[in-house]
Amino acid sequence: MNVTSEQLQTGWEQFKFSNDNDMQVSVLNYGGIITEILVPDKSGRRENVVLSYKDFEDYKNDPNFFGAIIGRVAGRIQDASFTLGGNTYNLEANDGENCLHSGSAAFHSVIWDAEPFQTDEQAGVKLTHTSPDAEGGFPGTVDVTVTYTLNNRNQLMIDYEAISDKTTALALTNHTYFNLSGNLRETIKHHNVTMNSSRFAELDKNLIPTSNLLDVSGSPFDFREVKKLAVGIESGIEQNTFAGDGFDHYFLFDQENGNITVKEENSDRVMQIETNQPGTIMYSGNNLGEGLALKEGPSRKNLGGCFEM
């Protein structure tokens, strides 16, 4: 196990931690952004399996939230406001009339305090940040800790902890876009996915949940048996077209712990996700624009996918 760091610009630092199996993860203290995950394919060729910018400056105004910690609340808040304890809290409307990922100046755009660590069996970085009362419109001062840990079993673990001095809204996630083909060789349309979910949250045309949970049976949303993402991306049904031809939906897990498997056949890379959260938003990169300068080449639609838990 090994940890190194480098200064990139004023206040910005990148941490790289690797294990004994040729896997390496790179994380910025800015936004807690995962900038690179290097893993071997079936031939032992080590390549990057996440989307990241070629120029770090592009993270400062990133509408895609590549690799970042999202908070205080991930996802969309309808009409950029919510009521809690009889009080209404108004937020930034940065997605039409709604608030997406807590606004433009949220956890993804702050410099976190960083403490790297290393033992014989694991390495990583612990990030901490204090969000003051009323920041972004949310009540309460919140102390947040997010820890990235890589071990010799090729497991990357993300642990979240937050303490608030007031009742508040809080739902953290990570927004890394994965592409297991390696170095963005292909889109994710032919990634195979399985997950233990028989229901998903219906969306309206503004991508706001309607409060209806729909049965996945007989639909492109049924990943209880392995299915290519292309089935939904190319389905043409209303729920997929609402999301920009693909997925941007919350899947509710059938068991207490969620399990997702993603496989890319050409590289033979497999990503297994385990979580103690009740569900995940699976996003298939439908709104990813063309021509962004990424490390391995220009961006395009469906070039990466997120699992937001």
Rank of each mutant, 00 (worst) to 15 (best):
N94Y: 15
G86Y: 01
E92C: 11
F117D: 03
S164D: 09
R153G: 09
A80C: 04
G137H: 04
G103P: 15
D120H: 01
Q155S: 04
D113R: 13
W112Y: 07
I77Q: 09
D120M: 03
E92I: 12
A106M: 12
N154L: 10
L150G: 00
H108F: 08
G124D: 00
P132N: 14
A80Y: 02
L127G: 06
D120T: 03
L84P: 00
P116Q: 05
R76Y: 14
Y160Q: 05
F117A: 04
I77F: 08
F138Y: 15
N87G: 00
I70V: 12
Y160V: 06
E115H: 09
A114N: 03
G86E: 00
W112D: 06
V142C: 11
A134V: 14
L100M: 14
H108D: 13
N87R: 10
A162T: 06
T128L: 10
T88R: 07
L84A: 03
G137A: 10
A105H: 10
V73H: 07
P132S: 14
D159T: 09
T130L: 12
R76A: 14
D79C: 04
G136I: 10
F82M: 04
D95L: 12
D113T: 13
E92M: 11
P132V: 14
D143A: 13
D159L: 00
T88H: 00
W112S: 06
T141I: 12
T128V: 14
A134C: 11
F107P: 04
Y160L: 04
N154Y: 01
R72Y: 06
T145M: 09
F107H: 07
F138E: 05
T119P: 05
D79Y: 04
I163W: 07
T83G: 03
T141A: 12
Y160S: 03
G137C: 09
E135S: 15
G96C: 05
S102K: 14
E135M: 13
I70Y: 03
C99L: 11
H108I: 07
E161I: 02
K126A: 09
I158Q: 04
S131G: 08
E97Y: 08
T145Q: 12
S102A: 10
H101Q: 05
L84E: 03
Q122V: 00
A114F: 05
G103W: 15
I158N: 04
Q118H: 01
N152D: 05
N152G: 03
L84R: 01
I163K: 14
D113A: 12
W112L: 05
T130I: 15
S131V: 14
E161Q: 12
L91G: 07
A123R: 01
G71F: 05
Q78C: 07
H129W: 15
V73R: 07
C99T: 13
